[in-house]
Design a protein around this nucleic acid. Sequence first.
RNA 1: GCCGGGAUGGCGGAAUCGGUAGACGCAGCGGAUUCAAAAUCCGCCGGUAGUGAUACUGUGAGGGUUCGAGUCCCUCUCCCGGCACCA
Length: 868
Amino acid sequence: MSNRAPSLPAMQEKYQPSVIEQAAQAHWNAARAFNVDPDPAKPKYYCLSMFPYPSGKLHMGHVRNYTIGDVLARSHKMRGYNVLQPMGWDAFGLPAENAAIQNKVPPAQWTYDNIAYMKKQLQSLGFALDWERELATCKPEYYKWNQWLFLRMLENGIAYKKTQVVNWDPVDQTVLANEQVIEGRGWRTGALVEKREIPGYYLAITQYADELLAALDTLPGWPERVKLMQANWIGKSFGVRFAFPYELDGKQEKLWVYTTRADTIMGVTFVAVAAEHPLATRAAQNNAKLSAFIEECKRGSVMEADLATMEKKGMPTGIFVDHPLTGEQVEVWVGNYVLMSYGEGAVMAVPAHDERDFAFARKYGLAIKQVIDVPGKPWSLDAWQEWYADKENGVCVNSGKYDGLNCQQAIDAIAADLAAKDLGGKQVQFRLRDWGISRQRYWGCPIPIIHCDACGSVPVPDEQLPVVLPEDCVPDGSGNPLNRRDDFLKCSCPKCGKPARRETDTMDTFVDSSWYYARYGVDAATRAKNDRMVDAGTAYWMPVDQYIGGIEHAILHLLYSRFWTKVMRDLGLVKQDEQFEPFANLLTQGMVLNHIFSRRTDKGGIEYFAPEEVDLVRNEAGHVTGATLRADGSPVDYGGVGTMSKSKRNGVDPQALIEQYGADTARFFMMFASPPEQTLEWSDTGVEGAYRFMKRVWAFGFALKSQQATGEAGGLRREIHLLLKQANYDLGKLQFNTVASACMKMLNALEKTPADPHAREGFSILLRVLSPIAPHIAHALWIELGYGDDILNAPWPEPLEEALVQDEQELVLQVNGKLRGSLRVKVGADKAAIEAAALTNEAAQKFMEGKPAKKVVVVPGRLVNIVV
RNA sequence: GCCGGGAUGGCGGAAUCGGUAGACGCAGCGGAUUCAAAAUCCGCCGGUAGUGAUACUGUGAGGGUUCGAGUCCCUCUCCCGGCACCA
């Protein structure tokens, strides 16, 4: 029966993962099983997992992510799709510079070494990847197109230059990433971080805000939670922009603010502006205390989380503006909580109806004037109450002509009155800000600009692209080493030809990852010539049919990618569909967490330790309370659990697992551990169980090979097809843990009746359902048992109706909602018959205690509930 | 602080539309096999009471809707992700 080629050795009784996995992988490579081209004869399925940052080693989050993708890719291939699953490297970024500082190795070399190692790891896991399409974003042939598209954006007014606020480390004289700021201090120096304004390039994502919001409705294949997060991030609000007129230095001026609660305008008792606001600067000119306060506001980090949680402070400017409707004098304050980057950098303050303003007014003894009332709710100055900000039930009071109006009516009337005075009107506003892409770092894509004393900032001409980043620099923590590289810096102005200086800022790495999915699709000819960014291959493969990645990317990466695709569409580079979206279906994988250990350094910075470097200290309840360093017994801080990451040093390398148990066990265990969308706290207990299962599958296959079906047909066939039905349902739901458990249940059933005439059919179903999760063992047994020459070409199994039929079924019997017994009835029995059978049931009679049934609930196929 | 999500045995988790809570696996316990161990196989395995049949109780906490709630509604606690320069 066997189709085995004569050269193959006899089947081994013992399960040897390393042998069968190498053989299967060699077979796939030789057959070019996963290298694909456009094929009009089949439906296409573009399956993409987010590409990894080459941090050094894979961690369990990667194994989880790429196994999920592989399960989908392989099962779709078996279902007849033309499947593309590519892989590449998000290769620019900060960790390479940190490694350079530590080890004095150029980021390029470190990155390429990491890529080589991690590629080997990925290959050893047997993923169905088309490696011919591999790309790395740090290679000039890729980032050339970042630069090219940036220049198109400049031409179209999407890219522009303005100032940006950054974290500045005064000791290292360098810009810090938010991640490098710990409790307001530089992570290496411990110095208090300052805010600093420097010029930078921005991409006008706000021009697409409305479309990015509206198009969320065209994405039924996205999780609701992600769409909700993106909608909230874009933050479209309908409000009123208006001005407080004032006279200063003999000139008539207007202070503009934006509010969504114009109905409370009569309750304004002061106005707060950001420390960077021109009015604050003006007021500080002859006010040393205010000037000092503004300086204080400029200290600290730029992170929103820090700004939102810090103590709210303010100081009066001594400048008064006129209330636009009453003409009353209102004082302007500087507030450390007002963001210059949002709206107008100034807000009207209504302490009675805004929680933050209320706390602020109480702190500084400012007036609080109630102008909204909810009938039946007493208002008092003592403490803030939720209803003070109620938009639904409130009506205006103490508001003159607006008294009695509800929120929307008042906003309409007030907006109209402001417009009549030429002091403002309704305006739609977005929370979304333009995307600042300039980074003062070396290991990134150079921004293609040349600075000329005569001509200013001049774009690099297309024919000079790419601007190549020298790969031999070694950053030392004191700023961008490109500033010391004359061979990079010195150039001539493309306009006037005079000596000029090249821009040394590089692009945010989110730029690199905003279009890589489109690049994977290009044909081999384009990969070779690199004469275009995308081509007909891209048009064939896009959009990505299934995108898989961590939930941490729910907002930024996914929003930037959607924006970038729409820009490419408007430039005519990708499909011209009105609302072209890059990712049709999205699976957001939950994070894999592990314990975090850290310690403050002498300088006040922070240092992390890997879990294997420490011993845990537990309390009586068994909870981890602390840890000591294994090397010297000194205590370290326990930081709870968090995402596995290079920077926190809490990643778990799957290599040991693969070497000990094989790729199939690692993959199966990872899928079995929990449903993909759920957060997973790492633990390897249970790996043994997955390995035992593999051994049992192999042993059953070995026995079945020489077994004659002698027994009589029992319930095996129905059981297997029932499990198959469930497995297919779960696969459709992307719930792979129960697909894995269905495989285990199938094997349990098969082992109970190995001589059943349907055992061979059942095992073929098990192998096919198992194959996307544990492809190597399935591949080997498929051939050994002579089912065919390649399981990848086998059809995906579907449950047979004939195998599922039954004539009786068991119903749950309840009395007053409590389980009291069960009931066997003919399939298709009508409600009256079921009810009659239930009422005469012995267990039912006992618990009814002779009382008459008030009501009988019959749920067909499920249960009967008798209510007495 | 704001936005999004989560919480079920000792542990990971299952329960499709509101209908048998704990599938499947791990750990543990008992047994078989073995000179012994590993491996393998069989059995038990939420809590309380009971020799047992069985009864009561039980899905983070408190309340509600319903014949019936892990699932729906309200309030709260803790944990995770994001907050625009980690990727």
